[in-house]
Each structure stands twice: as structure tokens, then as C-alpha cells.
């Protein structure tokens, strides 16, 4: 197991027996997984497998049961804003930037008090990380490109100085050049020690970044381990990932 490599590391997030529902329909079934500190994990699976629902459950956005531990704290029944304040940063699918607000105002919404022991994110530092945003800083978010909005969505969440970043499909719908730039940026963040759980369908994007793959199929964990073993398992790859 590739997880072994991190066994001595500190588990930052642990989910066990996680179920989730939309209305009466159960979407997740008894999920269990761990994300260790400093690690990048790719959450993979076909459309509708439950990737988004998993991160939304972690964030307290959908009705769920089971146990979620983050940094020694239990998250069950906590409100999203309280979870965010504990250090879980969520970047939603389809970006959902505040269109009527300017780029700097979007960042302001995400600002939370600095966390002890780490340098706090400021708009200036984020503009260094995302140079495109620096130029667009006073523009309305609605007047920025899709790539800029994706970067803004990430930057906005970083303003909360999260310990764990939940990224829902960061490469989706972006031009290849932008995808490359995004990958680079995420590498930088990883190098700075940020822990990331990333929903990603695109294995070519995920593979160079992630330490480990977690594959969902119809709301259950089908695979949890290294990319090498995943790629060797042709049947699993075809069945669960549709590459």
C-alpha cells in the first residue's frame, strides 16, 4: 500500500462510515479514507460517481452521517462556516466566484484570521502566485476569463489560510495552456506544504501532482493506492475511470 509511505505522518482528515443523501436518494455508501498532512490525494471516478458529493459532505453542505475527523476534531453537525474556520478550504465545482464583486472584493470575502505557525495569505502574495489576477484585480469577476475565475476561486479560498484544500475539478473546462499553468501553481502550493484533496477526472492532470489516487464508483471507494498499481489494473481503470 502506498499509504504506508505516509504511515508515520500525521493524519489530517479521516472519514469513516460516511454516507450522504440528496433528499431521499443515498449517494455515498460507507466511505472510508484518510488524507495525511502534506499529501496531495486525487479523488477520481466517472461522472456521477460521487466525487463532488464527498467534498461537499466534508464541508457540511449535504446531509450525511458517519464520522469525519479533521485535525483531531469531529466535524459532524458543524456548519460550513465553522468548518471553514477550522482550516478546511473548499473550491467548488464551476468556480462560483461572486460575479458582481471585483477580484479584490472576492478575495476579501475569503479572508480569515491568520493561522499560527504559517505565513498568512495576503492579496499581494496571491497576486505573485497568480499573476493574471494581479492585472485583473479591480475588474468585476464577471468580466474575467474562465481561467482567471478558476484561479480567483482558488485564491479566494486560500485567503482563509486553510490547512487542507478541497479542490473540485480545477482543470475542468480550461484551455490546455491554462491547465498547464494551473498544474504548476498547484505544485508550488504542494511544495509549500499545503495538503490537497482534489476531485479530478483527468488522470494526466492528476498523476504528476498527486501522491495517491482514491477511486469512487457509484458512491463507494473502489481503489485507494498508488497510481502505478492503478495503471497496472486495466480492468479497474476501464471500469471506474473510463479513460
Amino acid at each position: 500500500m502506498a499509504g504506508r509511505r505516509h504511515a508515520k505522518k500525521h493524519p489530517l482528515l479521516t472519514a469513516s462510515g460516511l454516507n450522504a443523501w440528496y433528499g431521499a436518494a443515498q449517494i455515498l455508501f460507507d466511505l472510508g479514507f484518510t488524507v495525511f498532512e502534506g499529501e496531495v490525494v486525487a479523488l477520481m471516478g466517472r461522472n456521477g460517481a460521487g466525487k463532488s458529493t464527498t467534498v461537499k459532505s466534508l464541508m457540511g453542505l449535504v446531509r450525511h452521517s458517519g464520522e469525519i475527523r479533521f485535525d483531531e476534531r469531529r466535524l459532524l453537525n458543524m456548519k460550513p462556516h465553522a468548518i471553514a474556520r477550522l482550516g478546511l478550504g473548499y473550491v467548488p465545482e464551476e468556480r462560483r466566484v461572486f460575479k458582481g464583486l471585483s477580484v479584490v472584493e472576492n478575495l476579501e470575502v475569503g479572508r480569515l484570521p491568520p493561522r499560527e505557525g504559517t505565513a498568512a495569505w495576503t492579496p499581494e502574495r496571491l497576486f505573485d502566485l497568480f499573476p493574471n489576477l494581479a492585472e485583473a484585480r479591480h475588474r468585476q469577476a464577471s468580466d474575467t476569463s474562465g481561467g482567471e475565475q478558476q484561479m480567483l476561486a482558488i485564491a479566494r479560498t486560500l485567503m482563509g489560510n486553510p490547512k487542507l484544500l478541497l479542490l473540485d475539478e480545477p482543470s475542468e473546462g480550461l484551455a490546455p495552456v491554462i491547465v498547464e499553468r494551473m498544474a504548476k501553481t498547484l505544485k508550488t502550493l504542494k511544495a509549500e506544504g499545503l495538503t490537497i484533496l482534489m476531485c479530478e477526472q483527468n488522470i494526466h492532470f492528476a498523476r504528476p501532482l498527486a501522491d495517491r489516487a482514491l477511486v469512487l464508483e457509484s458512491g463507494v471507494v473502489r481503489y485507494d493506492g498508488s497510481f502505478e498499481a492503478l495503471e497496472a489494473d486495466d480492468i479497474l481503470r476501464r471500469g471506474s475511470l473510463a479513460l
Binding site: Y90, P92, F98, L101
Partner: peptide, 20 residues
């Protein structure tokens, strides 16, 4: 700014730590 953000998208404002 928070009021405008929450008007546009309450749920996301919440996930960013805004106490509704």
C-alpha cells in the same frame, strides 16, 4: 462586501467562513 457576496451566493459565502 460580505452582504453583497451572500446576496449573490449564500452557500459559497458560508464555505468561506462567513457566519450567516
Amino acid at each position: 462586501v460580505l452582504v453583497r457576496a451572500a446576496t449573490a451566493d449564500r452557500e459559497i459565502a458560508g464555505t468561506l467562513g462567513v457566519n450567516q
